[in-house]
Computed example of a mutant assay.
Amino acid sequence: MATTSALPDLPTGDEPDGTERPEALTVIEPGVQTTVQDYPGRRGLQAKGFFPAGPVDHLAFRVANLLVGNAPGAAGLEIPMGRFKARLGFAGVIALTGADGAKPTLNGEPLPLWEAVRVAPGDVLACGIAKGPGFRLYLAVSGGIDVPEVLGSRATYTMGGLGGLDGRALARGDRLHVAPEGVGRTRRLRLPQSLRPGYVNDWEIEVMRGPHADPDFLTPDDWRDFCSLSWKVDLNSNRVGTRLNSHRFTWARKNGGAGGGHPSNQLDGSYPLGGINTNGDVPVILGPDGPTSGGFTTIATVVHAALWKVGQLRPGRDTIRFREVDFDEATALSKHIQYLLDPTHLEEL
């Protein structure tokens, strides 16, 4: 099992059998909450108290892995808001995808997004604050980040303090290693401009109604408000949940009955990933590190094909309008995502 070190003066690390492992990168500037993630994270463990973790924007993350020739589940880095710098320690390729405006560089020269770039030991990758549109960047290295699997995934689960590197965000001096099969890759691929996701400041996000919507919990007017209002993304948003501005719903009932005094209360039940949880008058979109259950209503759920948009919402600035879709349209949106992830659509450089 691979190990990592948070101490910059330690050796780069060998396997117990003496085999040297190539170093992927050494963190110089860690950014705000850069974490190791993989996709789809820890599925199937919600009953045991674990949301899946994994990237908030699964589309940009998966494209980055595709560009460097990794398997879909390979681990990479999620970099919120940019401001990240690292020294690379291997020969291979890397790809950076996601938010605009971070002005990434490799050895001081501009580094293009959405394409694989060759790197060599000693190269320095840097990016500034991602001014947007968009909020998160994703870094994939050929072979993938080599950290131990915990409960079947390498993803960092910040709420539980497990996975990734010691269950935490990266810190200055951390050393991460690359899986040996990625060393020496030279093939350069690019996602065509026409297939790149569009980032904006005012988003439309597709949802399905419920499980706690009208007529039992919300009134029809409440649901119309939910789908017609422009919702502001609150500064207090993170991987656990994207908090929106408060709104006083009318509600179809006077209280939560046995669940509590407020109509948004219910007896504790499980929450879906992407569920829009209503804590009193405050809607919160539950992220990959969110709580698995609780006593608040979930009035709508972001469809899987639109979850990537939640990962690019900039706290304190962006707005959302929700659009209701049915099962057939949600399925069609998922097929579109799979089209974008078809490797035959990539351009070779």
Rank of each mutant, 00 (worst) to 15 (best):
M1H: 13
T3P: 00
T3H: 10
S5N: 07
L7W: 15
D9I: 12
L10C: 11
R21Q: 14
E23S: 10
A24K: 08
T26W: 13
T26L: 15
V32Q: 13
Q37I: 05
G41D: 00
A47V: 12
G49D: 03
V56M: 13
D57H: 08
D57Y: 03
R62H: 13
V63R: 06
N65A: 13
L67P: 02
V68S: 00
G69H: 05
G73R: 09
M81C: 05
A86L: 11
F90A: 03
V93A: 04
K103P: 03
E115Q: 15
E115G: 00
A116T: 01
V119E: 06
G122K: 12
D123A: 10
D123T: 09
V124D: 03
A130L: 04
G132L: 02
F135V: 00
V141I: 09
G144D: 00
V150T: 13
L151I: 07
A155C: 01
L165P: 01
D166Q: 14
A169S: 11
R172K: 14
D174N: 03
D174R: 04
D174K: 03
P192N: 05
Q193F: 13
R196A: 02
V207A: 03
R209P: 01
P211K: 03
H212G: 06
P215Q: 12
R224V: 07
D225E: 15
L229E: 05
W231I: 03
K232W: 06
N245S: 11
S246C: 14
T250W: 15
T250S: 13
G256D: 05
A258P: 09
H262V: 10
G269Y: 13
G269M: 06
P283R: 02
G294T: 03
T298D: 03
I299T: 04
T301V: 04
V302H: 01
W308P: 01
V310K: 00
V310S: 05
Q312N: 12
T319F: 06
F327W: 14
A332F: 14
K335S: 10
L340D: 05
